[in-house]
Amino acid sequence: MIEWLQAPEHAQWVDLGITVGGRLLGALVLLLVGLKLAKVLAGWVGKKLQNSQLESTAALFLGRVILIVMQVVLLLAVVQVLGVPMASMFAVLGAAGLAIGLALKDSLSNIASGVMLVTLRPFKVGDLVTINGVTGKVEMVSIFQTRLRGADNQVITLPNSLITTDSIINLTPDTMRRIELVVGIGYADDIDLAKSSALEIMQSDSRVLKDPAPTALVYELGESSVNLGIRCHVANADYFNAKCELTEQIKKRYDSLGISIPFPQRDLHIVDGGTAGSAPVPDMAKAS
């Protein structure tokens, strides 16, 4: 085997194999070490950004961008170690970039939307938002998508392009939220008693804020009920529990006072008869 390798006609292949193998080995080592180093550096920079005055959402987004830029630079370095001419490489990348851009236009739209979200900042990490009919707490804003945590602890992932083209309801900016209950009472019931009872329940609850003061108004005269608008303000953290418990307390109080809460009813009239063109079904009782 050694004599075959030392033969003059095989020497050039041996040299070529050593050269190519060395380049492949060097490129592999550079790739593995570079990926590890890029993650460490991106993580370090991300922590520095989060500890700075920069808003947390922008810091997380820039950390992801820095990691991707490092990986692209590493890929170009690996290609250069392999001996591929950079001029030819850029020409190929330019031609392929156009095709890839057309094929991945939705992904590019997500990137542009991610930049808009970080720049305009309609919400930040930790905010409670409603987007496209979905409500959750913002956990991460990445280049392509935004991740929310739902009330049932489910993970909700939304493409950034969907977020910027839809309405965004941020439920967090203020320190309080308004609870609005619409309760219908019967037309024969005492409206003043129903309003005063609801106000008493809200005023006795320590979670209900004094300013703005709770109110109870007649919203409308419905088809089967007088609809009352019962409103108060609570802190963001108390919203869900306070709304549920106030609803329960008002129902129980109205029951004890004899105030009815009507519900829609429908009367069905069933006509017993044969279909067109057929003989009527005989009455067995009369036949007997």
Rank of each mutant, 00 (worst) to 15 (best):
R231C: 07
Q203M: 02
V226D: 04
I201F: 14
N170R: 09
N227F: 00
T175E: 13
I179Q: 01
E220I: 05
G186V: 13
L181G: 07
Q203D: 02
E223I: 07
V226A: 06
R231H: 09
V183P: 01
V183N: 00
A188Y: 09
S225H: 00
I230A: 00
L181W: 12
D192G: 05
E220N: 08
P212A: 06
Q203R: 09
G229F: 14
L171Y: 10
S197C: 07
L181M: 11
D211P: 03
T215S: 15
Q203V: 04
Y219I: 02
T172P: 00
S224Q: 11
S224I: 10
G186F: 10
D211E: 14
T172N: 01
P173G: 09
D190G: 00
I230W: 00
E223N: 09
L228P: 01
E223D: 11
E220F: 04
P212I: 07
A216E: 03
R207F: 11
G184S: 11
P214S: 00
V182L: 14
I230F: 03
P212L: 01
G222L: 10
A216G: 04
R178A: 15
L217A: 13
M202K: 05
S196D: 15
Y219Q: 14
S224N: 09
L171N: 03
L199D: 07
A194S: 10
E200T: 06
G222I: 10
L217T: 05
R178N: 13
K195P: 03
A188T: 15
S225P: 04
I185A: 08
I185D: 03
L209K: 13
G222V: 05
L181I: 13
L193I: 10
M202V: 05
P173Y: 12
